[in-house]
Design a protein around this nucleic acid. Structure first.
Length: 445
RNA sequence: GCGGGCGUGGUGAAACGGCUCUCAUGCUAGCCUUCCAAGCUGGAGUUGCGGGUUCGAUUCCCGCCGCCCGCACCA
């Protein structure tokens, strides 16, 4: 089928209650989005699936949920205060912005030093440069009611930081031995210069991250394993087509300050192949820095070899919003049915906002409605996410469910009253099957 | 942040310096309907925000906000 357009996804999200612009009635706020009733269901399903695969199915991976605001020293140790506070200069003619340290060809972040170095330099376009200014990508806030510099804190720019600071706590309380992992799902905040592409690049995002602590000698094998895990999760658990996925290895220039190696899985978003899930070898960068900055001993003692060392870390990191967008894009299909176009979300049944919709064939026959309500109540107990719909005609209801990805529609007709059977209509094939009410629980999988 | 384009019911579109801003679809109420958006009769719902020009602005001008594209950025 033709490539999915971004506007199709945006329109569907709005129309059907997946994603709304934040503060929409006030004109919105760039880089912020809200999940609607269906979006939150789908997102919760995605997170639950990840948590299950990552935490529940691994004996040696433990979950945490840490504070969004941490001691600011954490971000000094992590390199974010330095790495996020980019010194920028502006071309006074074209108003293009450049990294001052790049133009000056230095590692320094010092404003005075950079100003000195760039004093007689021109921009790449040959124009004079404006003053060097810092641009901090971390969102600042204040602790306490008074805005004093002493009370400055940051909203976390990633969830990984506070996993590292809990490394020792988790190791100790869970009596964990290497290798083991710590996983977290949570919000992070970044002052993106220009948020773009709907929910792809945003200023408030939710991450699903896992940091796997290992012996340095295991780094290559473990790195490979977690790359496999990510790929399998996307294809097998989320049903994403392989043709929509691509591997991308970071070269030296692309890598984050903490990473020795980085592989991303790219997904074919409406705006092209873009980063979805990263696997990084962070080495002992983080724990090493935290040991140095905090003065706390974070070494691991290996009973077998009687050695002490700082564990290496392999990170697996994926954004919830991007995963949602990928799943929607992957599932979005427009197809011909009886000469008309229908939009259908071919979501895996476990992920769909509603597992099943229940309808009486006709609305103006009380005995059908009553029976349909009974079936609805039963299924509701089993699945929880069940919708009742008796508005309009039956075809209209089917199409409505198609568009929100409900895999099954159960219809109660006059035969139901005689023999307790219903029709189960399949979203993808549109075919119907006659099924006993008692066996419905097992059919709708 | 720079440059360009755009902003009209929920969605997708049309029109206009003035007359009740139009259409489709969706939503909704009633009727009808024995399986794929049928039909009939009703209903609610729109010019992003602020200012200016004007007798009068959704239309023209300015600012802001937002969205999309390109550049830069993406730890």
């Amino acid at each position: 089928m033709a490539d999915v357009k971004l506007e199709d996804i945006v329109s569907l999200c709005k129309r059907r209650g997946f994603v709304f612009q934040a503060s929409e009635i006030y004109g919105g706020l760039a880089g912020f989005y809200d999940y609607g009733p269906l979006g939150v269901e789908l997102v919760n399903n995605l997170k639950a699936e990840w948590w299950k695969a990552m935490v529940r199915e691994h004996d040696n991976i433990f979950g945490v949920d840490t504070a969004i605001i941490q001691n600011p020293k954490l971000w000094e140790a992590s390199g974010h205060v330095a790495g996020f506070t980019d010194p920028l200069v502006e071309d006074t003619v074209t108003h293009k912005r450049y990294r001052a340290d790049h133009l000056a060809d230095t590692d320094s972040n010092n404003i005075e030093e950079l100003t000195k170095l760039l004093k007689d330099k021109k921009s790449p376009d040959g124009n004079p440069l404006g003053p060097v200014r810092t641009f901090n990508m971390m969102m600042k806030t204040y602790i306490g009611p008074v805005e004093e510099s002493e009370s400055t804190a940051y909203l976390r720019p990633e969830t990984a930081g506070s996993i590292f600071t809990n490394y020792e706590n988790v190791r100790e309380t869970m009596r964990a031995k290497l290798p083991f992992g710590i996983a977290q799902v949570g919000k992070a905040f970044r002052n993106e210069i220009s948020p773009r592409d709907f929910i792809f690049r945003v200023r408030e995002l939710e991450q699903m991250e896992m940091q796997y602590f290992i012996k340095p000698s295991d780094q290559d094998k473990t790195y490979e394993d977690w790359r496999d895990f990510a790929y399998k999760f996307l294809t097998e658990r989320l049903g994403i087509d392989e043709q929509n996925l691509q591997w991308h290895e970071h070269d030296e220039n692309e890598r984050a300050h903490y990473a020795k190696a980085a592989h991303d899985i790219y997904f074919k978003f409406p705006q092209g192949f873009k980063e979805l899930w990263g696997t990084h070898n962070r080495t002992d960068f983080d724990l090493g820095n935290h040991q140095r900055f905090s003065g706390q001993n974070l070494e691991y003692f290996d009973e077998e070899t009687r050695e002490k060392f700082i564990p290496y870390v392999i990170e697996s990191s994926v954004g919830v919003g991007r995963m949602l967008m990928a799943v929607l894009t992957n599932a979005y299909v427009e197809e011909e049915i009886n000469g008309e176009t229908r939009i259908v979300l071919k979501l895996k049944p476990e992920l769909a906002p509603y597992r099943v919709a229940v309808s009486p064939l006709l609305k103006n026959k009380p005995e059908l409605v009553k029976k349909a309500r009974e079936v609805y109540d039963q299924l509701k107990q089993k699945f929880g996410n069940v919708m009742f719909d008796d508005n309009g005609n039956i075809g209209k209801r089917y199409r409505r469910q198609d568009e929100i990805g409900t895999p099954y529609c159960v219809t109660i007709d006059f035969d139901t009253l005689e023999d307790d059977t219903v029709t189960v209509r399949n979203r993808d094939t549109t075919e119907q099957e006659r099924v006993k009410i008692n066996s419905l629980r097992n059919e709708l999988v």
